Simulated assay, not measured.
Amino acid sequence: MGNSIGVLKDSIQNELLSSIFDLSQDYAEIGIDKLLDNAAFKEMPVVKTIVSLSKGALAIREIVVARKLIVFLQQFHKGLHSQSDVDKMIKNLVSDSGKRDRIIEQIIIMNERYIESKQSVVHANLLLAYLKSRLTWNELSDLLICLDALHPRSMDYLEQLEKQNFVFLPALSSSWVGSLIAVGLTLQKGPHKINELGRKLYYYGVKGDFNAVIPPIEATSMDRLTPSN
């Protein structure tokens, strides 16, 4: 098992550091039953590695995990807008083997757990934000834990909350907001607000806007009416 994980880690590392990655197909939109008939999918090194580790046959679980890993890698490479970006990422990853191993282990573990490929996309964006020094390692790790537990549709609701300066009253809000509260992405004194970590999830992870200025958490009139503990 240990050797198998090592082989998969090496394969993912090679794909992260590759200057060329197939962005021509949206594998998230291809049904599981169609993937094994997709020649380009089967020829991808990560997929070949998973096939070899599965002794030549892919069960549904392996197909799903392979698709999420490919979606993750596609999004990661979409976020590298120039060869200069690629060179910086390679230098960043190659220079610190300990950090590289932690990153790749996160990629394997979390993509195996995610419910939807959309979470793999957000994970890739958050990793890019970390490599671009927009997030600390602890923030990245905390956000990935939240991402794993968060209902994917809650991330769509963040777009609506942005128009409200990320302030909301739970009783008057979408049912999906409960998921944001449950994973600790809100402040719950007075009217609820999406906290700084939640705002970073939205701008860096969901939107993939690495140049975003994270809006500060502003006091409201209702805050001033709420007694402090």
Rank of each mutant, 00 (worst) to 15 (best):
K9W: 00
L143R: 02
L80D: 09
M89K: 06
I12L: 07
I115S: 14
R100D: 11
D101G: 11
S179Y: 08
L36Q: 00
R134A: 00
K34R: 15
W137I: 13
I107L: 03
G208W: 04
S18C: 09
C146H: 06
M222L: 11
P152F: 06
S24T: 14
Q164V: 05
G2R: 10
D33Y: 13
I63V: 01
G56M: 02
H123D: 14
H151E: 09
H192P: 01
K78V: 11
Y202C: 01
G79L: 00
A129K: 07
L185M: 08
V47K: 09
E29Q: 05
E105Q: 05
A28L: 12
S52I: 01
L128I: 04
M110A: 11
V213P: 11
I181V: 09
F210S: 09
W176Q: 15
K68I: 08
M1E: 13
S4L: 10
C146V: 12
Q25A: 04
F168V: 03
L73F: 02
T226A: 10
I109D: 14
D85Q: 03
L128M: 02
F168A: 01
I20R: 15
L140D: 00
D209P: 07
Q13T: 12
I109E: 15
S19I: 11
P215R: 10
N111Q: 06
F41A: 05
N111C: 05
F21D: 10
S82R: 01
D96W: 03
G56V: 02
L35D: 08
I104L: 09
L126W: 03
M44F: 10
N111I: 01
M1S: 12
N229K: 13
L53A: 08
N195D: 00
M44Q: 14
Q188F: 13
G31I: 08
L128R: 07
E116L: 14
R113V: 14
M155G: 07
T220W: 00
S84N: 15
R113D: 13
S95P: 07
E62C: 02
S97F: 12
M1N: 12
L187I: 11
V121P: 06
D142K: 07
Y204V: 03
A182R: 08
S24K: 06
A149W: 01
Q164A: 08
F72G: 03
Q13C: 13
K88G: 05
T186N: 11
K189L: 14
D96E: 00
Q13L: 12
S95A: 15
K91F: 13
C146A: 06
I194S: 01
Q74W: 04
R153A: 09
A182I: 00
G6Q: 10
D10K: 14
Y130R: 02
S11I: 01
H123F: 00
K163H: 07
N211A: 09
N38G: 07
S4V: 12
I214V: 07
E105S: 05
Q160I: 12
L201D: 02
F76S: 05
Q74H: 02
K55H: 12
V47S: 02
T226Y: 11
I5G: 03
R153K: 06
T49S: 02
S52G: 09
R100L: 15
L53W: 12
Q75N: 15
N229T: 04
I115E: 15
S174F: 03
A57L: 13
S54E: 04
I145N: 13
D33P: 09
